[in-house]
Measured scan of single mutants.
Amino acid sequence: MDVFMKGLSKAKEGVVAAAEKTKQGVAEAAGKTKEGVLYVGSKTKEGVVHGVATVAEKTKEQVTNVGGAVVTGVTAVAQKTVEGAGSIAAATGFVKKDQLGKNEEGAPQEGILEDMPVDPDNEAYEMPSEEGYQDYEPEA
């Protein structure tokens, strides 16, 4: 019985440690998101679009440190934060509304985080759909 109880105690310690790591990862992701939003706020009209992409990228980098179902929630929060940063930029006159959601080359930025393969159960990952990809044929 002692062996059984000791095993359960060790398992509990492992769960607590994993929860603490997840909590730490979420806190880091939130900190990076805040950094990115402050970065966007300090940019001029020309830099705002690039700044919004930076927020998304920093958040995406930190999301990889967070495991399990938390990833889905962090990704949703990050996307809403990026959308909010863009709205703030438009409201303050840093950028025109028609410039939001495009990178410096004018290509749409939507789907940055949505296409990231995420499995809350950590069982399997699927690649994003290939609808947006084109076949590449090298020139002879």
Rank of each mutant, 00 (worst) to 15 (best):
P128W: 08
Q24R: 10
M116R: 06
M1K: 00
P128C: 09
M127Y: 07
K45T: 14
L8I: 04
T54N: 09
Y39V: 07
L38D: 02
K43M: 14
E130D: 15
V77F: 05
V63G: 04
G7V: 10
P108H: 06
Q134P: 02
E131H: 11
G132T: 11
D2A: 05
V70N: 02
K10A: 05
K32I: 15
T81L: 06
V48C: 07
E105Y: 11
V40Y: 12
A11T: 07
D115E: 10
D119F: 01
V74L: 08
A19K: 04
D119T: 04
V118L: 10
F4S: 00
E46C: 04
G68N: 02
V77Q: 10
V77W: 13
Q79P: 03
K32Q: 07
T92W: 08
H50Y: 12
L113F: 15
V37K: 00
A107Y: 14
K60I: 08
V66S: 05
M5V: 15
L8D: 00
G51W: 14
Y136P: 03
K60R: 04
Y133F: 11
F94L: 14
L100Y: 02
H50E: 14
I88M: 10
K32W: 07
E83R: 04
E130P: 13
H50S: 13
A27C: 12
I112W: 04
G51F: 05
V95L: 02
A69V: 08
P120F: 07
D98Y: 10
L8C: 03
D2Q: 09
G68V: 07
V70S: 02
V16W: 07
G31Q: 12
I88P: 09
V37A: 04
P120W: 08
Q24A: 08
K97F: 09
T59G: 11
K102H: 15
T54E: 05
E46R: 11
G68Q: 05
D135L: 08
K58D: 03
V48H: 01
V66L: 13
P120Q: 10
L113A: 09
E131T: 12
V74N: 01
V3T: 00
A76H: 14
T22E: 00
A90M: 06
Q62H: 05
Q24F: 03
V74S: 02
G68A: 02
A90T: 15
Q134K: 13
V52F: 04
V55Y: 04
Q62L: 04
V3C: 04
D115Y: 08
Y125E: 04
G86P: 11
S87I: 12
H50C: 15
D135C: 07
P128N: 10
G84C: 09
L113H: 07
K45Y: 03
P108W: 07
T75L: 11
A17Q: 03
G93T: 09
E114M: 02
V37P: 00
A89L: 04
E20D: 10
E114T: 15
I88H: 04
V63M: 08
V74K: 01
A69G: 12
G31R: 02
V48G: 02
D115T: 12
Y136Q: 05
G68E: 11
Q99I: 02
E114F: 04
G132Y: 09
A69Y: 14
T54I: 08
E126H: 14
F4P: 00
G84H: 10
A76V: 11
G47R: 09
E114S: 02
L100E: 11
G7T: 08
P120V: 03
N122E: 10
K43V: 14
E123N: 14
